[in-house]
Measured scan of single mutants.
Amino acid sequence: MTVLPKDIPGDSLKVTVGTANGKPGDTVTVPVTFADVAKMKNVGTCNFYLGYDASLLEVVSVDAGPIVKNAAVNFSSSASNGTISFLFLDNTITDELITADGVFANIKFKLKSVTAKTTTPVTFKDGGAFGDGTMSKIASVTKTNGSVTIDP
């Protein structure tokens, strides 16, 4: 049996954390987006972790974005102690894959008090994996961190 590389060099799934701005007490939304989904033969499963400074940001909610089908079954998240974990699994293993680019999740943060303008990162942590529509590992994932700026 011969195994051929399935990824064209330079191609990767792009996962990007967005940015937001606000004043202390505001609730802002930071999107997590996927790009080049079709090039990577869709997404059938993924789990990953984001870190944030809990002294500056309070997670209000984490909701599935419009590219997630049947989110009540296929999407899960949790947030505590400065870490947000995400889990997606197409429970049907074929019919509810992520097949389009767009917003995977929206994180709502309540901004805490600061004395001066502060930009705090929302960054990928170690761990996690992504699988394509056949549940094979997506070897190349380009992750881009985001941030939230609090301006009193």
Score class of each variant (00 low, 15 high):
residue 1 M to I: 11
residue 2 T to K: 07
residue 3 V to T: 09
residue 3 V to R: 11
residue 3 V to P: 11
residue 3 V to D: 12
residue 3 V to K: 08
residue 4 L to T: 12
residue 4 L to M: 11
residue 5 P to M: 06
residue 5 P to C: 06
residue 6 K to L: 13
residue 7 D to Q: 12
residue 7 D to K: 11
residue 7 D to Y: 11
residue 8 I to N: 11
residue 8 I to M: 09
residue 9 P to W: 10
residue 9 P to H: 12
residue 9 P to C: 13
residue 9 P to S: 09
residue 11 D to K: 10
residue 11 D to Q: 11
residue 11 D to W: 09
residue 11 D to V: 12
residue 12 S to H: 13
residue 12 S to T: 13
residue 12 S to K: 08
residue 13 L to P: 07
residue 13 L to S: 07
residue 14 K to D: 15
residue 14 K to C: 15
residue 15 V to L: 07
residue 16 T to F: 13
residue 16 T to E: 08
residue 16 T to N: 09
residue 17 V to P: 10
residue 18 G to L: 13
residue 18 G to W: 12
residue 18 G to D: 13
residue 18 G to N: 10
residue 19 T to C: 11
residue 19 T to N: 13
residue 19 T to Y: 13
residue 19 T to H: 11
residue 20 A to T: 11
residue 20 A to C: 13
residue 20 A to Y: 12
residue 20 A to F: 12
residue 21 N to L: 11
residue 21 N to R: 12
residue 21 N to Y: 11
residue 21 N to K: 11
residue 21 N to E: 11
residue 23 K to S: 11
residue 23 K to G: 09
residue 24 P to Y: 12
residue 24 P to N: 13
residue 24 P to Q: 12
residue 26 D to R: 12
residue 26 D to I: 13
residue 27 T to W: 14
residue 27 T to M: 13
residue 28 V to R: 10
residue 28 V to E: 10
residue 29 T to G: 14
residue 29 T to S: 11
residue 29 T to C: 09
residue 30 V to L: 13
residue 30 V to G: 08
residue 30 V to H: 12
residue 30 V to A: 10
residue 30 V to K: 08
residue 31 P to A: 11
residue 31 P to G: 11
residue 32 V to D: 02
residue 32 V to H: 09
residue 32 V to Q: 11
residue 32 V to S: 10
residue 33 T to L: 12
residue 33 T to E: 10
residue 33 T to M: 12
residue 34 F to I: 06
residue 35 A to N: 10
residue 36 D to K: 13
residue 37 V to N: 12
residue 37 V to D: 11
residue 37 V to R: 07
residue 37 V to C: 08
residue 39 K to V: 09
residue 39 K to S: 11
residue 39 K to T: 11
residue 39 K to G: 13
residue 39 K to A: 12
residue 39 K to R: 10
residue 40 M to L: 08
residue 40 M to P: 11
residue 40 M to R: 10
residue 40 M to Q: 06
residue 41 K to F: 14
residue 41 K to V: 11
residue 41 K to W: 07
residue 42 N to F: 15
residue 42 N to K: 11
residue 44 G to R: 01
residue 44 G to D: 03
residue 44 G to I: 13
residue 45 T to W: 00
residue 46 C to K: 00
residue 46 C to V: 00
residue 46 C to I: 01
residue 48 F to K: 04
residue 48 F to N: 05
residue 48 F to A: 08
residue 48 F to G: 12
residue 48 F to D: 04
residue 49 Y to W: 03
residue 49 Y to M: 01
residue 49 Y to I: 01
residue 49 Y to H: 03
residue 49 Y to D: 00
residue 50 L to T: 11
residue 50 L to S: 07
residue 51 G to N: 14
residue 51 G to P: 14
residue 51 G to V: 09
residue 51 G to W: 08
residue 52 Y to P: 03
residue 52 Y to R: 08
residue 53 D to P: 13
residue 53 D to I: 14
residue 53 D to H: 10
residue 53 D to V: 12
residue 53 D to F: 10
residue 54 A to V: 12
residue 54 A to P: 10
residue 55 S to C: 12
residue 55 S to L: 08
residue 55 S to G: 13
residue 55 S to H: 13
residue 56 L to P: 07
residue 56 L to I: 09
residue 56 L to G: 12
residue 57 L to S: 10
residue 57 L to W: 12
residue 57 L to M: 12
residue 57 L to R: 05
residue 57 L to V: 10
residue 58 E to H: 08
residue 59 V to G: 06
residue 59 V to Y: 10
residue 59 V to D: 07
residue 59 V to Q: 11
residue 60 V to A: 10
residue 60 V to F: 09
residue 60 V to Q: 10
residue 61 S to T: 09
residue 61 S to E: 11
residue 62 V to G: 09
residue 62 V to N: 08
residue 63 D to M: 13
residue 63 D to E: 09
residue 63 D to K: 10
residue 63 D to Y: 07
residue 64 A to I: 08
residue 64 A to T: 08
residue 64 A to D: 14
residue 65 G to T: 10
residue 65 G to H: 11
residue 65 G to W: 09
residue 66 P to H: 10
residue 66 P to C: 13
residue 67 I to R: 13
residue 67 I to W: 04
residue 67 I to L: 12
residue 68 V to Y: 07
residue 68 V to C: 10
residue 68 V to D: 10
residue 68 V to M: 10
residue 69 K to V: 14
residue 69 K to C: 15
residue 69 K to I: 13
residue 70 N to K: 09
residue 70 N to S: 12
residue 70 N to L: 04
residue 71 A to R: 10
residue 71 A to W: 04
residue 72 A to C: 13
residue 72 A to V: 14
residue 72 A to I: 12
residue 73 V to K: 05
residue 73 V to D: 12
residue 73 V to N: 06
residue 74 N to V: 01
residue 74 N to G: 02
residue 74 N to K: 04
residue 75 F to N: 01
residue 75 F to Q: 07
residue 75 F to D: 01
residue 76 S to I: 02
residue 76 S to G: 14
residue 76 S to H: 06
residue 76 S to C: 07
residue 76 S to R: 02
residue 77 S to T: 12
residue 78 S to C: 15
residue 79 A to R: 15
residue 79 A to C: 15
residue 80 S to C: 05
residue 80 S to F: 12
residue 80 S to P: 05
residue 81 N to I: 15
residue 81 N to W: 15
residue 82 G to S: 15
residue 82 G to E: 15
residue 83 T to P: 07
residue 84 I to G: 01
residue 84 I to F: 05
residue 84 I to C: 14
residue 84 I to P: 00
residue 85 S to C: 01
residue 85 S to Y: 05
residue 85 S to K: 01
residue 85 S to L: 00
residue 85 S to H: 02
residue 86 F to E: 02
residue 86 F to G: 03
residue 86 F to D: 01
residue 87 L to R: 00
residue 87 L to Y: 01
residue 88 F to L: 05
residue 88 F to V: 01
residue 88 F to E: 01
residue 88 F to A: 01
residue 89 L to C: 03
residue 90 D to V: 05
residue 90 D to I: 01
residue 90 D to F: 02
residue 90 D to M: 03
residue 90 D to H: 02
residue 91 N to D: 15
residue 91 N to K: 06
residue 91 N to V: 05
residue 92 T to G: 03
residue 92 T to H: 02
residue 93 I to P: 02
residue 94 T to Q: 01
residue 94 T to D: 00
residue 94 T to F: 15
residue 95 D to K: 02
residue 95 D to R: 01
residue 95 D to Y: 06
residue 96 E to V: 04
residue 96 E to M: 00
residue 96 E to R: 00
residue 96 E to P: 01
residue 96 E to Y: 02
residue 97 L to S: 04
residue 97 L to K: 02
residue 97 L to A: 15
residue 98 I to N: 04
residue 98 I to A: 04
residue 98 I to Y: 00
residue 98 I to E: 00
residue 99 T to K: 14
residue 99 T to M: 12
residue 99 T to P: 05
residue 100 A to M: 03
residue 100 A to I: 06
residue 100 A to H: 09
residue 100 A to E: 06
residue 101 D to G: 07
residue 101 D to I: 03
residue 101 D to W: 00
residue 101 D to V: 06
residue 102 G to P: 02
residue 102 G to A: 03
residue 102 G to D: 06
residue 102 G to L: 15
residue 102 G to C: 06
residue 103 V to N: 00
residue 103 V to R: 05
residue 103 V to Y: 04
residue 104 F to D: 01
residue 104 F to M: 02
residue 105 A to V: 05
residue 105 A to N: 02
residue 106 N to A: 06
residue 108 K to A: 05
residue 108 K to P: 02
residue 109 F to E: 00
residue 109 F to L: 05
residue 110 K to R: 06
residue 110 K to D: 00
residue 110 K to N: 04
residue 111 L to E: 01
residue 113 S to M: 05
residue 114 V to F: 05
residue 114 V to Y: 04
residue 115 T to P: 06
residue 115 T to K: 07
residue 116 A to F: 05
residue 117 K to M: 06
residue 117 K to V: 04
residue 117 K to S: 05
residue 117 K to E: 05
residue 118 T to V: 04
residue 118 T to D: 06
residue 118 T to G: 05
residue 118 T to Y: 08
residue 118 T to A: 07
residue 119 T to R: 11
residue 119 T to G: 05
residue 120 T to Q: 03
residue 120 T to L: 04
residue 121 P to C: 04
residue 121 P to V: 05
residue 121 P to H: 08
residue 121 P to T: 06
residue 121 P to N: 08
residue 122 V to D: 01
residue 122 V to I: 06
residue 122 V to L: 04
residue 123 T to I: 07
residue 124 F to C: 03
residue 124 F to G: 01
residue 124 F to N: 10
residue 125 K to E: 04
residue 126 D to T: 15
residue 126 D to I: 15
residue 127 G to C: 04
residue 127 G to Y: 00
residue 127 G to A: 03
residue 128 G to N: 00
residue 129 A to E: 06
residue 130 F to S: 02
residue 130 F to A: 03
residue 130 F to V: 02
residue 130 F to K: 00
residue 130 F to P: 02
residue 131 G to D: 03
residue 131 G to M: 01
residue 131 G to H: 01
residue 131 G to Q: 00
residue 131 G to S: 03
residue 132 D to S: 07
residue 132 D to F: 02
residue 132 D to I: 01
residue 134 T to K: 11
residue 134 T to Q: 05
residue 135 M to T: 02
residue 135 M to N: 01
residue 136 S to Q: 02
residue 137 K to S: 00
residue 137 K to A: 01
residue 137 K to H: 01
residue 137 K to N: 02
residue 137 K to W: 00
residue 138 I to M: 09
residue 138 I to S: 03
residue 139 A to D: 05
residue 139 A to Q: 05
residue 139 A to L: 07
residue 140 S to F: 05
residue 140 S to P: 10
residue 140 S to A: 07
residue 140 S to D: 03
residue 141 V to M: 10
residue 141 V to I: 05
residue 141 V to L: 06
residue 142 T to C: 03
residue 143 K to Q: 02
residue 143 K to W: 04
residue 144 T to D: 02
residue 144 T to I: 07
residue 144 T to G: 07
residue 144 T to Q: 06
residue 145 N to F: 07
residue 145 N to D: 05
residue 145 N to K: 07
residue 145 N to A: 05
residue 145 N to T: 05
residue 149 T to I: 14
residue 149 T to M: 15
residue 149 T to L: 15
residue 149 T to Y: 15
residue 149 T to D: 15
residue 150 I to T: 14
residue 150 I to A: 14
residue 150 I to C: 15
residue 150 I to P: 15
residue 151 D to R: 15
residue 151 D to H: 15
residue 151 D to W: 15
residue 151 D to S: 15
residue 152 P to L: 14
residue 152 P to Q: 14
